[in-house]
């Protein structure tokens, strides 16, 4: 097990609750995330995993409780503001613009401009070159950078989404089922990528249904059951059976 500095959490969620109509999607959830740590969020469908990450990323505002990043509250910020702070979310459907090339996808919303005869124009060349570097940094090389990303494989697209986050210096990366849509070799590559990012001090929260994946890449597991915390374990201190039991709501600690 790698040594993680647990003195100061990068991100802390404190007693956060959220209700949608008659459904208590989150009740009094608390968790801490440390630099370079991979935290797995596990739980059955409807356990509140998505609600929790959407509150962190600013999509939903918690009804009560507080979310802090580097000690500063971020509970009532917009998704854009949260992202600018360095908390990047990679959604299941990847959120790439399929018809545009890699460079544009990495820079979308934060384009680089240059001036030609005093007229501002998009600097496509710069963005493409930077994206080559960003991908290389993660050990990825693409043959044709001018291609719309829809022609790339699922793993390559996942890698682009991750490189975008890394290029913009994300300190916290939230990944929603990053391996769900991928073939086995590509799942392998994404898991390697997660480990590489962890080595650079990026903290990662990832949602997964796949216990194998969870045990392979995460340092800690946080189990949710019907909006509540069912349990939290260091990965070395637990077993698949115990995690399944927590997911079913059988073992409730704290």
């Amino acid at each position: 097990m790698r040594q993680i500095d647990r003195t100061a959490p990068l991100l802390s969620v404190e007693n956060v609750s959220k209700r949608f109509g008659g459904t208590q999607a989150s009740s009094l959830l608390s968790l801490d995330l440390y630099p370079g740590e991979v935290l797995a969020l596990a739980g059955d469908n409807g356990a509140g995993k998505s609600t929790l990450i959407k509150m962190i990323s600013g999509v939903h505002q918690p009804d009560s409780g507080e979310i802090r990043y580097k000690g500063e509250t971020i509970s009532h910020r917009s998704p854009h503001q949260v992202r600018d702070l360095g908390i990047e979310t990679i959604y299941q459907d990847l959120a790439l613009a399929d018809n545009l090339d890699v460079g544009i996808n990495i820079f979308l919303g934060r384009e680089r401009m240059k001036r030609v005869f005093g007229i501002p124009v998009l600097d496509r060349k710069y963005m493409r070159e930077e994206s080559v570097n960003a991908l290389k940094h993660l050990g990825i090389e693409l043959n044709d950078l001018a291609m719309p990303v829809r022609y790339l494989s699922g793993g390559q697209r996942q890698a682009i989404a991750i490189s975008r986050a890394v290029y913009w210096k994300a300190k916290v990366l939230i990944m929603d089922e990053p391996t769900a849509a991928l073939g086995v070799p590509e799942q392998r590559e994404v898991k390697d990528l997660i480990k590489r990012l962890q080595g650079e001090g990026v903290a990662i929260i990832f949602i997964s249904h796949n216990l194998n994946d969870i045990f392979e890449v995460s340092d800690r597991i946080f189990v949710l059951e019907r909006g509540r915390k069912a349990g939290e374990r260091l990965i070395g201190d637990t077993t698949e059976d115990e995690v399944v039991a927590m997911m079913m709501g059988r073992v409730l600690d704290d």
């Binding site: 854009h80 959604y91 990847l94 959120a95 613009a97 018809n99 979308l108 919303g109």
Partner: peptide
């Protein structure tokens, strides 16, 4: 191409 991705990118 993908209006959701545009919105998420802050467009």
């Amino acid at each position: 191409g993908n209006i959701q991705s545009a919105i998420r990118a802050g467009v």
